[in-house]
């Protein structure tokens, strides 16, 4: 088989090696996906991301229109522009999906996340935790003599920053809702 000029046994000629190596810059996009509130709708969206190898940084879902049986899924994802376009097109062809909005291309969206943080400690650490909570406008929603549960809302970065500060002060557990987002203006 000298006719082929391919080294025998060479695996570098695999058909699986077709991906464009010129990958561009990845960016984060917040997508709002309006779906019928029916069994399996969320699984279809999640299955699409895992099946096609897309990233999910954050995902939230809840019914937003009870009468219309519509839910809003907010997905924060990362990818090159062509991957993001592909994600939107793939989401758009899921049958129960009514609309896919890319909030990031419509301008910086309003993004909020809610988190609950359990911080255990006594003495100075406890006082410091409470002082920082005040600065971050976090509310105390549960308290014992050795612990607080703080409630904080804001952009994800603010919650990250608050959690980082709480870590040396006795952070035990964090529960986060994921990002809810709306575009600005009308």
């Amino acid at each position: 088989m000298s006719a082929l000029k391919i080294k025998k046994g060479a695996s570098s000629h695999s058909v699986y090696d077709l991906r464009d190596s010129h990958s561009q810059v990845e960016s984060s996009h917040t997508l709002a996906v309006i779906v019928d509130n029916e069994a399996g709708a969320l699984a279809r969206v999640i299955g699409l991301f895992s099946g096609r190898g897309y990233n999910i940084d954050s995902l939230t879902v809840a019914e937003v229109d009870h009468k219309g049986h519509l839910s809003r899924i907010t997905v924060v994802t990362r990818g090159t522009e062509s991957v993001i376009d592909q994600i939107k097109a793939q989401l758009g062809r899921i049958v129960p999906v009514h609309e896919v909005k890319d909030l990031t291309v419509e301008g910086t969206p309003v993004e909020r996340e809610l988190a609950l943080l359990k911080v255990a400690g006594t003495g100075d650490k406890r006082v410091e935790a409470l002082r920082l909570a005040d600065i971050f406008r976090a509310n105390v929603v549960d308290s014992t003599l050795e612990s607080f549960v703080f409630e904080i809302t804001g952009p994800s970065a603010k919650i990250d920053a608050f959690a980082d500060l709480m870590r040396p002060l006795g952070l035990m557990e964090v529960a986060r809702t994921g990002v809810a987002a709306l575009s600005r203006g009308v």
């Binding site: 000298s2 006719a3 000629h13 058909v15």
Partner: peptide, 16 residues
Amino acid sequence: PSGKPHNEMLLSADAE
């Protein structure tokens, strides 16, 4: 051959 462009196609054993 997989991973090759269209203009590098092979014709029977006489491709060379």
